[in-house]
Design a protein around this nucleic acid. Sequence first.
DNA 1: CGACACATGTAACACGTTACATGATTTG
DNA 2: CAAATCATGTAACGTGTTACATGTGTCG
Lengths: 198, 198
Amino acid sequence: MSIRHGLLALLEGGPRYGYQLRTEFESRTGSTWPLNVGQVYTTLGRLERDGLVAPAGEDGAGHALYAITDPGRAELHAWLGRPVESANPPRDEPAIKLAMAVCSPGADPAALIRSQRERTSAALREWTRLRDRAGTDGRDRRDRPNGPNGPEETARLLVLERLILAAEAELRWLELCADRLADGRAAVPSASDGGREG
Amino acid sequence: MSIRHGLLALLEGGPRYGYQLRTEFESRTGSTWPLNVGQVYTTLGRLERDGLVAPAGEDGAGHALYAITDPGRAELHAWLGRPVESANPPRDEPAIKLAMAVCSPGADPAALIRSQRERTSAALREWTRLRDRAGTDGRDRRDRPNGPNGPEETARLLVLERLILAAEAELRWLELCADRLADGRAAVPSASDGGREG
DNA sequence: CGACACATGTAACACGTTACATGATTTG
DNA sequence: CAAATCATGTAACGTGTTACATGTGTCG
């Protein structure tokens, strides 16, 4: 449900055409969640079907514009005002995977923890890099090198910081898992249950 | 892709029937991600279509058993051995929502932060409670009150700790967002831009 | 001219989710 | 007996995702 409402939010700033929506969506989310162009059109089609957006003619260049409708605005603000349900959290794949691995005699949870840690560490480094140079890469930072950012830049920054904190939490969790497994090593009776210690 | 592989992992322990799979899935994931029974059957159907599981007769009580196949085992272990791609992380709805809110003149990001914080705090309390009494609620803890847990209990514990760490990270992020918005308050020129301070 | 970005769409599919239909068995 | 749980499925739908078809404009 994020893309639908994301597009609605973008359209609240005025009529847009499809390709433009993709660009702006990626810009606001720090290019972290690439959005396939096709997805924009299919989603626009569904939004139109539901009466939340409507075609709004063309701009000077002949682009097919879409505009948000009143029901669309209502739906958007309902969404923005409603916190995300933290009960029934989205299924976390690393967690499920590890939960299954510790119960699966053939699996090697420790190896999974190691490789997952490397993957996540790399992502963390990359996101930290992006955050630290956020806004420093030309564009519109010429005049106010340390001043308050525009809303879009703020949005990018918040998303990156979200990813960074989430990655750090995942790493901490992986450490914790490693400890737990080291403690109760005899928990899962593996085929070769010997003393290899990583 | 988590449910598919989750069911495969359960079936590696031997043939199971649908209803049983649901129970065990919820048990291993700490009842955090309730699984609709219908989903089990549809997923089993798709797994069978793909040759990863196969019907395996009935048990004594007449339950329709399914067993994992060799390709299924291969797929399972490939999945267990492969870390989750941390690039292209799953779209985080709170992050997208807030990113859109800080750019949306009509929205109230501060209010969203507050309500989201309350929601997440409540979930955090609940999960902490569940973790602290994990294993203490009868079942099979009679004999070894502090000893190492069985694999399933370990799995439940790890999942709960994952949720707890994730919730804490989200709360920290929300605080950070509140600070950022307090700093650059003039960032988004709102309709009523006045000095209400929460 | 050829390659590439811009731009709009469609078709097909996967996964997850809910709601419904149906029956057996248990339990108060 | 009635209600609840166990148990097996099916139908329909929604979102997200990819791959493809198509055309325009631009730039080297």
